[in-house]
């Protein structure tokens, strides 16, 4: 649970959740150990092909352990699954802070199969 990624429409904790995975605008990475975050503009969103797997690669490389997202496709989900990253349902339009709080309190539902 130490590193949590949220797909976001903007770069701050007040930004809203972007429902998309591969084409979300920003990835906000919350580090629970240091209680700090960093936001990464999702360059893979501009790709013509493979934005899902490329975004998934970024999360693997960043050592993320949990992902909060609205929708995720089969290929990205496979990467999450094999990479040991748990995926949780975040509601599009809620703030990043809200879904992070909900996640840390154990209130988010785990996504067990691709939903997009």
């Amino acid at each position: 649970m130490s590193k949590i990624a949220v797909c976001a429409a903007g770069e701050s904790l007040n930004s809203t959740v972007d429902g998309r995975f591969g084409r979300c605008a920003y990835l906000i990475l919350w580090d629970e150990d240091n209680k700090s975050f960093k936001s990464i503009p999702n360059e893979a969103a501009q790709r013509a092909h493979g934005s899902g797997t490329s975004t998934a690669q970024l999360l693997v490389s960043e050592g993320v352990k949990s992902l909060l997202v609205g929708r995720i496709g089969p290929k990205a989900f496979e990467v999450m699954n094999k990479g040991g990253i748990k995926v949780y349902q975040a509601e599009e339009g809620q703030s990043v802070q809200m879904v992070l709080d909900a996640c840390l309190q154990g209130d988010l539902e785990e996504i067990l199969k691709p939903n997009n």
Binding site: H49, V60, K75, E78
Partner: peptide
């Protein structure tokens, strides 16, 4: 991870102990 970096189509993903290949991409 170089293979995943150079792939223009996101067809390879490198995990700590495994490389995933997505033939469709």
């Amino acid at each position: 991870g170089i293979c995943a970096e150079v792939c223009e189509f996101g067809a390879l993903t490198v995990l700590p102990q495994q490389v995933l290949v997505f033939p469709e991409l």
